[in-house]
């Protein structure tokens, strides 16, 4: 452990670890250009858990792939600033970028089977993940792999090291993926829906583990999910995405207490919540569907589904501060921010 200290990485501790300004991802499709990510801003502080939350097609996965440099070649990435700890990710040569991947930024995918090579043993893959980036002895890499497997709660780790990915259950595979991501002690882990494919009990265990490890290793995590329940429980800060934009960003506490974008409010209303929604009652669904991201969107992207929309919403609202670090991309953000009771159908009994 001692020879793997991250001291040399944290020279500039004051600035954020990752700064993203006006990130855009465009994909050519049959009907024109798909603007998957339409100019988003966010930053990740060292050691914090940022949740990117949104529904399918909102651009959250595209954002993570753009950060990792793993987008398909035909995708176009533009940004005013894409700075990872002093490194400009837009201009960095591909060789350095792939050194960065794995060593300082790691990724955990939804389906670990796609990220683990079925032809190699787990021990082999874990050690390789380290030896690819650092000059350490085979023995040292093996020891670290063993330590991490134990740390992520895998019993009989020695034996597991000699096994192949298909011999593990889904939950164990995801634990191995987490161990693999931690091999080089990265500064940033991007976890793309890492628990969506898992059973609820396993999900709770994995999330618990991830939160523990994050505190132990001081790793920043961008956690991508569609599940607001997960977000509420693990996030330090949250960025809500809709139609390729960040529409609201705040600390988890502030966001769930006083959501100030109609979309966030709608999302929170339409989840049945024990103790808040009356069983069997009608849920408050958000009508309509997400607009097409092919071509330009005029004005607020949510206005066709929003019950508050009026004339003003024909113009694109800016991301404006509601309070302190709480931003919302809505013309009515300030009115909405007043902490009105969210669930008017509170169970009274």
């Amino acid at each position: 452990m001692s020879n793997l200290s991250t001291a040399e990485h944290s020279a500039a501790t004051s600035s954020p670890l990752l700064t993203v300004k006006q990130l855009r991802v465009d994909l050519p499709v049959a009907k024109g250009t798909l603007h998957a990510v339409r100019g988003i801003d966010f930053h990740v502080e060292r050691g914090e858990m940022l949740c990117l939350v949104g529904e399918s097609g909102c651009g959250k996965s595209m954002t993570s792939l753009a950060l990792m440099g793993l987008l398909p070649r035909k995708a176009q990435v533009n940004a005013d600033c894409l700075n990872f700890d002093g490194v400009d990710l837009l201009t960095v040569p591909e060789r350095e970028r792939s050194n960065l991947r794995g060593a300082r930024m790691a990724m955990i995918f939804q389906e670990p089977m796609t990220a683990l090579n079925p032809a190699y043993t787990l021990g082999n893959q874990l050690s390789e993940a380290l030896r690819r980036h650092q000059r350490v002895s085979r023995q040292a890499a093996h020891d670290r792999a063993l330590y991490l497997l134990k740390r992520v709660g895998i019993s009989a780790a020695e034996e597991r090291m000699r096994q192949y990915p298909h011999q593990l259950s889904g939950g164990l595979r995801q634990r191995v993926m987490i161990a693999m991501a931690l091999m080089c002690e990265p500064d940033l882990i991007i976890a793309d829906e890492p628990t969506t494919a898992l059973d609820v009990t396993i999900q709770a265990q994995i999330l618990h583990l991830l939160r523990d490890l994050q505190q132990e290793f001081g790793t920043a995590i961008i956690f991508i999910t569609h599940d607001l329940g997960v977000v509420a429980r693990i996030a330090d800060r949250v960025a809500v995405m809709y139609a390729g934009e960040v529409i609201e960003t705040a600390s988890a506490q502030a966001l769930f207490k006083a959501p100030s974008h109609p979309y966030t409010q709608g999302l929170l209303r339409c989840i049945p919540t024990p103790g808040k929604t009356l069983p069997g009652s009608r849920l408050q669904a958000i009508p309509g569907v997400v607009p097409s991201l092919v071509g330009k969107i005029e004005g607020c992207a949510f206005c066709n589904r929003c019950d508050q929309a009026d004339e003003r919403c024909r113009t694109t609202p800016p991301l404006q501060a509601v309070a302190g670090e709480h931003f919302s991309r809505c013309h009515f953000a300030h009115q909405l921010a007043s902490p009105a009771p969210l669930n008017d159908q509170e169970v009274t009994s």
């Binding site: 998957a36 792939l65 097409s292 991201l293």
Partner: peptide, 16 residues
């Protein structure tokens, strides 16, 4: 289909 393309594909389907 790769994982990365699924979200955009579903977004497309929301339109006619």
């Amino acid at each position: 289909m790769t994982d990365s393309l699924t979200p955009s594909a579903t977004a497309l389907q929301s339109q006619l």
